[in-house]
Design a protein around this nucleic acid. Structure first.
Length: 260
DNA sequence: CGATCTGTTAGTAG
DNA sequence: ACTACTAACAGATC
């Protein structure tokens, strides 16, 4: 489930399993995911140690050696697995085999992810036109980046160049917790509603990270576990409704979330 | 069998 | 220029 909380959990997973381990061998599969030649990645990473991790929005960065970074994007189905010896999981696209005989594998069945080497996070950030990370952004900047938007709030929250890290699932949750309709126009939102959206954005993302991004462990007041047409709304006021917003399935509660 | 799914982007239309 | 819709990518699941 790769939105900001999932990628943050993946970052911590790398920190706790793979940092300061030396890479003995690098395995690459499926050219489609690679924006840097597979051979170059194998040559660059073999013999190096993983030294540091970083994250902006849904992108994970892992520094190896002195100043080179591996950049991973999880697409819709990317996952990391740390395991000892044995066979790498199905759909492994990149496998780092460490000297201690453990492996860090990046799997991606639907191959919508991306793997590449970059020189610096700053360059990558600029080239990909990423907005400020949703966990880092200040309230002032949040409001500033929304102030000239003409469209609906949900697509704006999901636009990575406006704010980085929020996808389809978490935008629904943030809107539900803020009692704002997904199709509400940004320019129609009151200052108070923007304050609420900002606060709930931080709260939802942090709560999810604290629960290891496991949907089943989220608070009972959350919509995420009820993503089903007709499910009971968590605060008992109505039923969950499914609509399409900018081409994506969107779940919300009409009783709780008004257009204004 | 057909529809749907956590992401992104190209093409298109307004 | 901006916004939003569709299709496409590929595999799993229902």
């Amino acid at each position: 489930m790769p939105e900001l909380p999932d990628v943050e959990i993946a970052k911590r997973y790398v920190d706790s399993t793979s940092l300061h381990k030396t890479i003995k061998e690098v395995e690459t599969h499926d050219r489609k995911l690679y924006k840097t030649a597979m051979k170059r990645i194998r040559e660059a990473m073999t013999g190096k140690q993983l030294n540091e991790t970083g994250r902006i929005g849904k992108h994970l960065f892992i520094r190896f050696g002195a100043s080179q970074w591996l950049a991973l994007h999880f697409g819709m189905t990317g996952e990391l697995h740390y395991f000892k010896n044995g066979k790498a999981p199905d759909h492994t696209k990149l496998n780092l085999h460490f000297k201690n005989n453990y492996n860090l594998s990046f799997t991606c069945p639907r191959t919508f992810g991306e793997i590449q080497l970059i020189e610096s996070i700053e360059d990558f950030d600029e080239k990909h036109d990423l907005g400020p990370d949703a966990l880092e952004i200040t309230k002032k900047l949040f409001k500033k980046r929304l102030e000239n938007k003409k469209g609906m709030i949900k697509p704006v929250l999901m636009d990575q160049s406006t704010i980085a890290g929020i996808g389809n699932i978490y935008s629904d949750e943030i809107l539900y917790q803020s009692k704002v309709h997904p199709k509400a126009k940004v320019k129609d939102l009151s200052d108070k509603q923007l304050d609420t959206l900002f606060k709930k954005m931080k709260e939802v993302l942090k709560t999810s990270i604290n629960r290891k991004a496991q949907p089943d462990d989220l608070p009972k007041s959350y919509l995420i576990p009820k993503r089903k047409e007709g499910a009971d709304c968590p605060d008992g006021k109505g039923q969950v409704k499914k609509i399409k917003v900018s081409g994506r399935g969107c779940y919300y509660c009409p009783e709780v979330q008004s257009l204004r």
